[in-house]
Amino acid sequence: MLKTKFTVRASREIALNTWELHLTGDTSGIVRPGQFVNIELPGLYLRRPISVCDWGEGSLTLIYKVVGRGTALMAGLKIGEELDILTGLGNGYDTAESGGRPLLIGGGAGVPPLYALAKVLKGEGKSPTAILGFNTREEVFYTEEFSALGVETRVATADGSLGIRGFVTDAMEGLNYSYVYTCGPMPMLRAVYEKMSTSGQFSFEERMGCGFGACMGCSIETKDGSKRICKDGPVLKREEIIW
C-alpha cells in the first residue's frame, strides 16, 4: 500500500453514467491487475474504493459508474485537481494458473479491472477471450479497447440492443477456455460460477471501512476461513467461495 497524491488529467463520460478518469502520480504501489485504490474525496469521511482499469509508470486509469454521493462527486472532478489516494490495495488476479486460453467475464462496472488483466495476460503470451455484459447499448464501453489488445471480445446485452441478446453466461456457449477470471454484480458471479467448467478467480465487492485490512468491516466467510475483501480479496478462488 502506498498513500500518494494524484492529479486529475482527464475525466469524461464514456457510457451512460459511466466515467473514465485519468490520473497522474506514483503508481509504484500497484503490482497486479484486479487491485484497487481508495480515494479521499472532499466532504466525505470514508474513502471510495475503485478498481484499477489500467496503470503505467506515473499514470492511472479508473472507470466507475455513478451510483451515489461519492461517485457523483468524482464525476465533477476538474482537470488539475489533486486527490489523496491509497494505491495497491487488495490481492488482485493471479495469472499463474490461467493456462493458455483464459476467459475474462465482466459485467457492467465489473469490466474495468479485466482490461488491465487482459493486457498482462497478453504480455505473458496467452490468448484471452473477453465477454463483456451490459444491460443495454448505452451502457456499453471499452469493447474496442479490448479488441485493440488483440483479445477476442464478445458483447452481450440483456435487452439485445448490442451483441448477443442475453447474459454473459449465454455468451459462454461454445467457448473453449482454460480458466475464468470474472468481476461483476453478485447474481452474475453466481451464474458464472454455476456455468463454468474450469477453475477460476472471482472479484467481489463489499462496503469497506478502511480498505487496507484494519477494521474488519468487509469480512466474509469462505471455505478457507474468514477473509477481508479489501486485504485477502477482492479476488477469491472459485474453490473457496461460499454463496
Binding site: 469521511y45 469497506m208 471501512g209 477494521c215 468487509c218
Partner: peptide, 18 residues
C-alpha cells in the same frame, strides 16, 4: 462477527457493526 454490510457512512464519521 456480523454479516455484511457492516459499514455505513455519516457526515464526518462512520457506523460499524463488525
Amino acid at each position: 462477527g456480523n454479516p455484511t454490510p457492516r459499514i455505513a457512512e455519516a457526515d464526518m464519521g462512520l457506523l460499524n457493526a463488525v
